[in-house]
Structure formats: C-alpha cells, structure tokens
Amino acid sequence: MSTSHTSKRMDASVPLNMRIKPATRNLIDRAAELLGKTRTDFMLEASERRAEEVLLDRSIFTVSPEVYAEFLARLDAPAQINVRLKRTMSTKAPWDNA
C-alpha cells in the first residue's frame, strides 16, 4: 500500500524555534531531567497539555431547541420532595454530637 505525499507531510515533524531566557531553560531542563525526559519532550508534553486545557475550557456545545426547552422547564419546575435529602439535612453532624 502506498501513502500519499500529503499524509506523509501531515505526520512529519516541523521545526519550532523560540528564544528563551537562560533561567527558564535551566528550570525546564531540571524538571525534564527529574522525569527522565528530554527538554523537547518535556516542553511538547507540557505545551500540548495546556493547549488542550485552553481549548476544552472554551468548548461550546449545542443542543436542539427541544432539549434546551426541556432543560429550562426542569429548572423552572417546583422542587420535588426528596425524603432522603430532607432526612440528611435534619440529621445532626457527627461533630455536633459531642
């Protein structure tokens, strides 16, 4: 099976150059060494993790108008009696029994 040139390029590594202060580089090197990683592997792992966090924090999900209407209806509905919750809230905390 042959692969196209496009898929080979998508998987290939590309250079990323940056300027960094020596103190920051030394900090990264010390942390990478503790984990038994190279500076590159450490920086890639850390930056990839942070990028995923940022993107996940900004992710917006959508639902159909029907699902959203049901959600709003449940929020607006009067609270249901919950016997277990009522019992829990009326029971003294263990630290109050002393």
Results as ranks from 00 to 15, higher is better:
V14C: 04
A31G: 00
E45R: 07
E45K: 07
K86C: 02
N82H: 05
V63K: 10
R49Y: 05
S90Y: 02
R84M: 08
S2F: 00
T62W: 14
N26R: 14
Y68A: 15
P78H: 04
M43P: 02
S7R: 09
F42N: 01
S90E: 11
T62Q: 14
S47R: 00
S64C: 10
V14T: 10
T40I: 06
N82C: 05
V83S: 04
V54A: 13
D57F: 07
M10H: 11
N17D: 10
I81P: 01
R87M: 07
L44K: 06
T88P: 02
E48F: 08
S2I: 01
W95T: 13
D41Q: 10
A12W: 02
L72V: 12
V14N: 03
S2D: 06
A32L: 02
E48L: 13
R50G: 06
L27M: 01
D96W: 09
D29P: 02
N82V: 03
I81Y: 07
L34W: 01
S47C: 12
E70D: 12
T38H: 00
P22H: 03
R84D: 09
A77E: 06
A32R: 02
L27F: 00
S59M: 13
N82E: 03
I28Y: 04
A23E: 13
T91Q: 09
T38C: 00
L55P: 01
Q80V: 09
M43R: 02
R74G: 03
I28Q: 01
N26H: 12
S90G: 04
S59P: 00
N97I: 15
V14Q: 08
T88Y: 00
K37Y: 03
D41W: 01
K21T: 12
R49D: 08
A98E: 12
V14G: 03
N17W: 08
